[in-house]
């Protein structure tokens, strides 16, 4: 049968086992476009829209789980209190129509270096939940993303959701595109100030083969911050921006130059940190 429309994870995994090369269809904003543009010819599609376990979110043991079918719009409108940085990122995705269709699972599965939710998810140490006939496993996002549009997902596996630790503290996500709406990321920066564990965590998009962190910059600024007052010396803020820029490995393409991307991430890092501090 060319299209499978399973309603639960077990049936999805069965369908996947029967045809490991099947295309997994969530919001369609990547897969159907590739078909329209003649870059992919589907032989068998497994449609995930009806799989109930992939919907919604829940919290267990202080860890938040977002289902793979959660759309950008749901994040933007319904989850802004729970995951403010992700909501900021979600609002920059494509258009309202795209945000209504596109899913977190799709953003993870496509694994574009410019994927808009990925920098924040990386900064949050998110773990990707994968189900397979052999059982479930979760993989830290940093290990899940193995390169441009390539992931650690095995052929028989299904992305069921993403798990996030509870993190207290300010956060910010900013993204650059050469238009004020509906634009692919030229550079994206996410920052999370974990005030409980007193750690600064970052994620950078569209400035490397996959989303990147800047561990040196994180370490240095974590030490420079006055965590009680939530302030930071100006020179340390500037140094943070520079260190983040240095941690990038951008390319030049038709969307931007490597030089601009590196520069821009440095500026975004500095500004994002400043937004998270007390004024």
């Amino acid at each position: 049968m060319p299209i499978s429309r399973p309603t639960d994870v077990t049936a999805t995994l069965d369908a996947l086992a029967a045809s490991p090369d099947a295309d997994l269809l969530a919001g369609g904003t990547d897969l159907v476009v590739e078909v329209n543009l003649d870059r992919r010819r589907p032989e068998h599609v497994i449609a995930l829209r009806r799989v109930t376990e992939l919907a919604g979110h829940d919290t267990t043991d202080g860890r938040l789980r977002l289902g793979a079918n959660v759309t950008y719009s749901e994040v933007e409108h319904d989850l802004a209190q729970l995951v403010p940085g992700l909501a900021m990122a979600a609002r920059t995705v494509g258009s309202p129509q795209i945000r209504n269709a596109g899913t977190l699972g799709g953003n993870l599965g496509t694994a574009s270096p410019a994927g808009d939710t990925l920098p924040w998810l990386l900064a949050m140490d998110a773990e990707v939940e994968l189900a397979s006939p052999e059982g479930d496993r979760s993989v830290p996002l940093a290990n899940f993303l193995t390169g441009p549009k390539s992931t650690a997902r095995r052929p028989a596996e299904l992305i069921t959701g993403v798990r996030l630790p509870r993190v207290e503290g300010p956060q910010h996500v900013s993204k650059i595109g050469p238009r004020n709406a509906m634009v692919i990321s030229v550079a994206c920066f996410a920052i999370v100030l974990d005030t409980t564990n007193r750690r600064v965590r970052t994620g950078m998009g569209a400035v490397g083969p996959t989303v990147l962190r800047s561990p040196d910059a994180e370490r240095a600024v974590t030490q420079a911050l006055d965590w009680d007052a939530l302030t930071c010396p100006e020179d340390a803020i500037d140094a943070f921006g520079r260190a983040c820029a240095e941690a990038t490995a951008p390319i030049t393409d038709h969307r931007s130059s490597a030089e601009y991307r590196r520069h821009a991430v440095g500026v975004l890092a500095r500004r994002a940190l400043r937004r998270c501090l007390s004024t």
């Binding site: 900021m88 609002r91 920059t92 910010h172 996500v173 900013s174 993204k175 650059i176 595109g177 238009r179 004020n180 709406a181 975004l268 500004r271 937004r275």
Partner: peptide, 9 residues
């Protein structure tokens, strides 16, 4: 400038 990208104050 930057719109929803929240790049500027």
């Amino acid at each position: 400038p930057g719109g929803a990208g929240l790049t500027a104050t």
